[in-house]
Design a protein around this nucleic acid. Structure first.
Lengths: 115, 115
DNA sequence: GTGGGTACGTACTTCAAAGTAGGTACTTCA
DNA sequence: TGAAGTACCTACTTTGAAGTACGTACCCAC
């Protein structure tokens, strides 16, 4: 029912979750356990974190490795497609970084420079 | 209340609307009137189209020019920031294009190859 | 004078994503 | 003994984006 109209559409759908950009950024630094991610992404609930990780896994950009031990240990990392996605996101991240302040102010304050 | 944590976060927020990638793509080809966009993006409602155009304008990537005539004529085009955004989106679009089919099938069918 | 085109605005509804709050089964540490 | 950590799952509620359906004011062609 989604039916993407162009590649950009599909890519935005993959990274479009509220926490997905941050998850991908964290995993691009190094693989992480669930708890590490939860502590890194302050404010995320466990439900949504696991949900978005599963979606990223389904979309083929994140790998989930279960180490069968007690207590459980699950490690998430980027697949080859995930690494390629991360590289494709770099220019976009740079674009955003340069404009973060303006975008932020324009989205809440309204005016650019309050007196 | 948004408060972006990284540039990627901010950029995804800008292009994150349902029709925004398509709007940006259309405007990157050439400037358009409202009606042209509405006809190009099959399925979009006038309300949402105008809404997303206003948000893109607020975020500084789209320029809105009103020609004061009757019947009204409004032309939308990309600003310099918008052109830069479009360029930054190219690698992401390419990434999505190469994986559109898989992403689509994995998101509705479930299995990769139905018999 | 009626229908179509221009570019909106506004009120209401729908629906999916995200948030909240609980539970599971097992272990280690104090 | 009981509190804390591991990585989840499930049910329910909230939120906000998008969709639907109308109205505006003006013009032109038929």
């Amino acid at each position: 029912m989604a039916e993407f109209l162009c590649g950009l559409d599909a890519a935005v759908a993959v990274v479009g979750g509220k926490w997905k950009p941050l998850i991908l950024w964290a995993l691009s630094v190094r693989p992480r356990r669930t708890g590490e991610l939860r502590r890194e992404l302050t404010g995320v609930s466990e439900k949504v974190l696991v949900q978005q990780l599963r979606e990223l896994e389904r979309d083929g950009v994140v790998r989930r490795e279960v180490h069968d031990q007690v207590p459980p240990k699950v490690v998430y990392s980027l697949t080859d497609d995930g690494v390629a996605l991360d590289r494709a996101l770099r220019p976009l991240g740079d674009w955003g970084e340069e404009r973060m302040v303006e975008i932020n102010s324009v989205r809440q304050g309204g005016a650019v420079a309050p007196p």
